[in-house]
Amino acid sequence: MFINSTGYYIPEKRIDNQYLAQINDSTEDWYVKRTGIITRARANEGETVNYMCIEAVKSAIKNLPYDIHEVDLIIFGSYTPSDTISTTAHVIQKEFNIDKAKAFYISSACSSAVNGMEIIKSFFETNISKRALLVCADQNSQYSNDHDRESGHLWGDAAVALFFSNEEISSNDSKVIDVITRGLGNIGKGPDGITLNPKVGIQMLYGKDVFTNACIYMSEFTKYIIKKNNYTIDDLSYFIGHQANKRIISFVCNELGICESKSLTNIETLGNTGCASAPLVLAQNYDNFKSNDLICLSVFGGGYSSGTCLIRKG
């Protein structure tokens, strides 16, 4: 399958370390050393998940090589949806009047985007769909607590949109070579590692377990997909890891032997944007990729779950 166009929406507001240091009796440097985060993107009251997703789709439409009404599959990935009944997939279908499209919502925490890609790939291979739209977003600030010293400083808000086709449409399309995912609910603390109860908010009660398993499985999945498709780590042009913690990304790159110049990140300025995370980095850098660049996305989500995909730029 092929990526035809990408787009995104990032709120302008930023929450800096100075603010968090003041309310938590800590230091700005403590946050940088612990996570690599300097500022976090923060949505305002009107920048709901629905709003951010619609704006991300508008951004992607600008370079779409076909009419959006050709889309026959809309998948929305999130763990902080604006509504769990009237899903953002259906809101987008209405906003852009995309008739005759299947539309639904998925969630496997921060692995949702790669899971969405795998679903799209399956729909294409079975001729159920030919054009697909994947939109991922999280408004973590709805549920995060700035006073939570364990994880309140991690979260950011953003949305990303990617259009896919079952065949190459233009020379600018990028080929998705392979996608693999796996549920890891039986590993470590599993479902207890990271939780979001609407009445309590986002909690990471076992941060060390999350950190350890993210490092293990992002590395393992990347090695596997590279070998499976007859490449080597040296063949990679860029690596995009889940933007959860800069130290996790650094550990994975060191484990894989990927030089820092090949690792693309946005966590320093945006924080952990959840489901949008890795594909958001892809979208932000998409126009800078050169023909035949080989890009690997590797993600890890609460639950736990993990996934990796290989992309060749057109």
Rank of each mutant, 00 (worst) to 15 (best):
L134S: 00
A89T: 03
R34D: 00
G271R: 01
S277M: 01
I92S: 07
K33E: 07
G314E: 11
Y51E: 14
N50L: 07
A56Q: 08
E118S: 11
D148S: 13
L294K: 12
K100L: 13
K62R: 12
I23Y: 12
L20Q: 13
R34M: 01
I3M: 04
V49L: 12
I3Y: 05
I10C: 08
T39S: 12
N115P: 00
V299M: 10
S141N: 05
I119P: 01
A89W: 02
Y286N: 11
A159E: 06
L196G: 04
K199E: 14
D178R: 09
I98D: 12
Y238D: 01
T27W: 08
Y8E: 07
F124P: 08
E118R: 15
I3P: 02
Y79A: 07
K102D: 12
S107K: 08
K13S: 10
C136T: 10
I128R: 13
G46L: 13
D178F: 14
L184R: 11
A161Q: 07
F104T: 06
G207D: 04
T195N: 08
F211S: 01
F123N: 07
A159M: 09
D235S: 14
K262C: 02
C309E: 08
A278L: 09
P198D: 05
N145G: 08
D25C: 07
G156Y: 00
D235E: 10
K33Y: 03
K199G: 06
N166R: 08
F221I: 06
T273M: 00
N24C: 15
D209W: 03
I54C: 14
N254K: 06
